[in-house]
Computed example of a mutant assay.
Amino acid sequence: MLETAAALISPPLPGTWPRFESPLRLGVMASGNGSNLEAIARSIQRDELHAEIRVVIYNNPGAGVAERAARLGLPAVLLNHRHYPSREALDSDIVHRLQAHGVDWVIMAGWMRCVTTVLIDAFAGQILNIHPSLLPSFPGLRAVEQALAAGVRVAGCTVHQVELAVDSGPVIMQAAVSVEPTDTAATLQARIQVQEHRIYPAAIALAAELT
């Protein structure tokens, strides 16, 4: 039975996370505030996740993630999707930037654009995403609102490998969050986000260990 707010599903304790021969080279893609970027960066600083963030790519001018990246001392590149003739053209530029920074793992942290085979094929099996639901339930936009509308008693978040279909791909890790009778989309989203910050760094380590 779930305890009050949340239950974490099988995350390894930080002291047991794998140490790789060399740090994982991450490229983070984000469209908004970038709180998951900061959670990953702080985990690296605490020497929990054996990785380094080589570059942050964002697509919305003025997005909060740019300020977070600057505060964390991380290079950030704006690739405004509105300036590209197609999704493939945007993804081609993303691939070029990621490869130029020596990235081997692509971490989507609130990237609000559908990706194409251009990106997926370039980093096959090494692209991760986090989604605010217990997939396969409630894929796509407004997942928290979907959960509340469905009247579920448990919501949560999922880290998964990225495939072409939206919010598909093998699940790496999930965290469950109980839905309270008084919850709004905002209050439930806030509790889910706490769990996102807990599991995403651990899921990156686990995915790399399994690859």
Rank of each mutant, 00 (worst) to 15 (best):
A7R: 15
I107T: 02
E209T: 08
T4G: 10
V103W: 05
I94G: 10
Q146S: 02
P181Y: 01
E3P: 12
N36F: 05
P75Q: 13
A176I: 07
E52W: 05
G62S: 09
S43G: 01
A149L: 11
A190R: 14
V106D: 09
H96L: 14
S137R: 12
W17V: 09
A203L: 05
S10L: 12
V55I: 13
S137Y: 07
A155F: 02
R19I: 13
A7D: 08
V56R: 02
A155E: 00
I204A: 02
L90A: 05
F123R: 08
M108Y: 08
G169D: 04
A109T: 02
S35M: 06
G62R: 05
S86D: 12
R42L: 14
L74Y: 06
D121R: 13
S168P: 06
T116L: 01
L210I: 13
Q146P: 03
N80S: 15
P12G: 07
T211V: 08
W111K: 09
D183C: 00
C157F: 10
D167L: 10
V166H: 13
A63G: 02
M108H: 06
H160W: 13
V55W: 02
R46G: 06
L210M: 09
V179R: 00
I40R: 03
V103A: 03
V159M: 03
I130T: 03
F20G: 10
G64C: 03
Y84K: 06
A124E: 12
N33F: 10
V166L: 15
Y84E: 11
E48P: 05
L90M: 04
L37E: 01
S178N: 07
E67C: 06
T184K: 07
W111Q: 01
S133V: 12
R87D: 14
V55A: 09
A69M: 14
P170V: 13
Q99Y: 07
V171W: 00
P11T: 08
V103D: 07
